[in-house]
Nucleic acid binder design. Structure first.
Lengths: 334, 334
DNA sequence: TTGAAAGCGCTAACAT
DNA sequence: ATGTTAGCGCTTTCAA
């Protein structure tokens, strides 16, 4: 059995398609009697409407395309949560794609999304290759890039500087007197924001005449297990480290667990630092150092920016919205 | 500047709309010369295509609607990952909605999704009220319910019995000799699968003449922080517990952290049990007890079932696919 | 306040 | 191998 169409609703209500359409959309210029009749008919038939026809006809959709690099890192679902909440009540429907940190895949996803004529696009990062940027520029729909800030946005960007976040963490750690610092990294070939944090961190070390004493990295995605394994390897070679900077909090949690197993006192003996301020950092037996990324706020602001760009004048809107990461040394805080 | 249409591509290539359409879709009955001309024209114009028109005209979309209850519990993004992977190469595009465990919100999301004429719908749980079920039955598209197994599916269900998972964990724990068991629960008003696990666990206790010594619950969403706080409260009142069953692994991790802070030996002194088999359980300094839910497999199988139901004969497909949770007592394993 | 006509951009079905 | 016609289900536009 086919879905009933507007035409059938109209027939049953004894009015024209147009009157039925207006009644269902809550237009003003319709008599109360018509509205009543149409609503009843729609209810009886179980009318649902057809967005394909609606959108094709009206030449606009209520779709917002969202592309994130990963689903298995809780940070991105949290950003999505922020986007959903920022879109609440707007009638806009987010559509997601996951790129697996693959820029070619990202381009394909974006191309596919564009064919749905979305009202706006929210994509992660600023490092899209020219081919993708061209696709987006041609489309003429507002593009909001999120999470990063180090680079040039296509239209708008909402994020934070990871280079600076890395630098600030290094400075705080150095200020606490640590000197023999190691690094553990995940997905080192593709997590571009982690690479920026590391670069910022290293730049600050260099300013102080230091470098990482040792580095352990992997191509695997970040996980607490990986953090634990890389830490064990790192400490086996360099037991005298007094700090480990981790590519993110998943890694840092694992790093902490490794230290606990090895009987290393955190943070007195060795300081563990991550990035994101995941919920778990507030429950760990020891508070590690971390920068709390405003990821939910990024999602919300991006959603609101998308709404504003769709409606108002795009030129009037701020191109760059910088949100700050809040740094803490955890239990090593003086 | 408007997006170029197929008509414009055809004109530039010097062929009809239909030939252009066929060429772009890789149809057989088109000359190599036409294909070449059309592809070049499309490339030059930056043609993207319009899925709205395509789907309206062909009366089928490549959309799969997916409704999950939460984004902040990593389990559901992992299911989405499984769905995405199961859909890979099929040309199908998942569209997500998050219900916040709210059945009214879920109904609205489903209604909205139906208006996009999806090829199939994947929704979480079996506990939809009659109104939602009616909506889905009327739509005549395949509905795959996931995660649960305790109840009657609309069309298909892929999941596991949480009642049984709870029962099995209780039996394993009792077999290990524990007798004074407490429970901590999150989102107790809405996490219906956690409620089923608890019920199964309690049923097994009862079979052995036992009950929970004490219970601490909260309306808040599960988190390691909540697990830690509830455990502290529970142990303050009942320091003699020899086991705590937690609503899930996030809670259990927090519970473990609380025990570590309190200097309680896990698992010798007190056994901590959760549910899901989250990645973190493999990195914790102590292995807790947990049931590893096959959540990624559920996503993949649901996706494949959706594909099969769209193409083949729905009647030929298994209505219920049961996947098993793998139980472990962690370091308490004999 | 209501309706009729036209058309959104594409494909199915039927030509040729 | 290619083109023509009709139409998907709705809204826009214009007229009444």
């Amino acid at each position: 059995m086919r879905q009933p169409t507007l035409e059938e609703v109209a027939a049953r209500a004894g009015v024209s398609k147009m009157t039925a359409s207006r009644a269902l959309r809550g237009a003003r210029d319709v008599s109360a009697a018509s509205i009543e009749k149409v609503k009843i008919a729609a209810e009886q038939l179980g009318y649902v409407g057809n967005q394909l026809a609606l959108s094709l006809s009206s030449r606009r959709t209520n779709l917002i395309g969202v592309v994130i690099p990963s689903m298995s890192n809780i940070v991105f679902p949290e950003v999505l949560g922020g986007i959903i909440s920022g879109l609440e009540g707007s009638g806009l429907q987010p559509v997601f794609g996951v790129s697996d940190y693959d820029l070619d895949k990202e381009r394909d996803i974006i191309r596919n999304m564009l064919s749905w004529q979305p009202a706006a696009l929210i994509i992660t990062g600023l490092d899209q290759p020219e081919e993708t940027r061209k696709l987006l520029r041609q489309s003429d729909i507002p593009v909001i890039q999120i999470m990063d800030l180090d680079g040039e946005p296509i239209d708008f960007v909402v994020g934070l500087s990871h280079t600076q976040a890395g630098r600030e963490m290094a400075e705080a750690i150095l200020a606490s007197g640590r000197k023999r610092i190691g690094y553990i990294g995940s997905a080192v070939d593709r997590d571009r924001r982690a690479i920026k944090r590391r670069a910022g961190f290293e730049a600050a070390l260099q300013d102080n005449g230091l470098t990482f004493v040792s580095v352990e990295t992997s191509l695997d995605a970040s996980s607490s297990r990986l953090g634990r394994d890389l830490t064990e390897r790192l400490l086996a070679r360099h037991p005298d480290l007094d700090c480990i900077y981790c590519s993110n909090d998943d890694m840092a949690a694992g790093s902490l667990f490794a230290c606990m197993k090895l009987g290393r006192a955190v943070p007195d003996d060795i300081l563990i630092a991550g990035f994101n301020g995941l919920e778990i950092t507030s429950a760990l037996p020891v508070r590690i150092a971390t920068s709390t990324s405003p990821r939910r706020a990024i999602g919300e602001q991006a959603a609101q920016l998308a709404l504003a760009a769709m409606n108002g004048n795009r030129k009037d809107l701020a191109r760059r919205i910088e949100l700050l990461a809040e740094i803490t040394l955890g239990d090593a805080e003086k």
